[in-house]
Computed example of a mutant assay.
Amino acid sequence: MRWQSALAIYFLFWAFCVFLVLPFGVRTAHEAGGELVPGQADSAPHEFRPGRIALRTTIVATVLFGLYYLNYVNGWVSVEMLDWLHPAT
């Protein structure tokens, strides 16, 4: 695999993991004991920390990409294993 392909696939893992990680660790103003700003939704997060989200996303994406790359090198799961409509006899 070329490094450009690996970088593009890592970026896709990272973009997917943003949505995977985003809901975890979020506290509303009511849960944090803060005041609501007029017009603010009750479910809005109390504090938005993009650095923490980026760090968590990078960790999860790196682990998932590592598993993907190990599967690519070792061939643990192949396309033939996932073809249930036309099983090999």
Rank of each mutant, 00 (worst) to 15 (best):
M1N: 03
R2I: 03
A6Q: 10
L7W: 12
A8T: 05
Y10A: 02
L12Q: 14
F13E: 13
W14C: 03
W14S: 06
A15K: 10
C17Q: 05
V18E: 02
F19W: 05
L20T: 04
L22N: 10
P23V: 15
F24Y: 14
G25R: 13
V26W: 05
V26G: 01
V26Y: 04
V26S: 04
V26L: 08
R27L: 11
A29D: 06
G33A: 09
G33V: 04
G34E: 14
G34A: 09
E35K: 09
L36M: 04
V37H: 02
V37S: 02
A41H: 05
D42C: 00
S43G: 13
P45Y: 08
E47C: 06
P50F: 15
R52A: 14
I53M: 07
L55I: 11
R56C: 11
I59C: 15
V60M: 08
V60E: 06
A61R: 03
T62Y: 00
L64V: 07
L64I: 10
L64H: 01
F65P: 11
L70Y: 10
L70Q: 14
N71F: 00
N71H: 00
V73L: 11
N74Y: 15
G75H: 09
W76D: 06
W76M: 13
V77R: 05
S78P: 03
S78V: 08
S78Q: 15
V79N: 01
V79W: 04
E80D: 15
M81Q: 12
M81C: 01
M81H: 04
D83W: 05
P87Y: 03
A88H: 12
T89F: 05
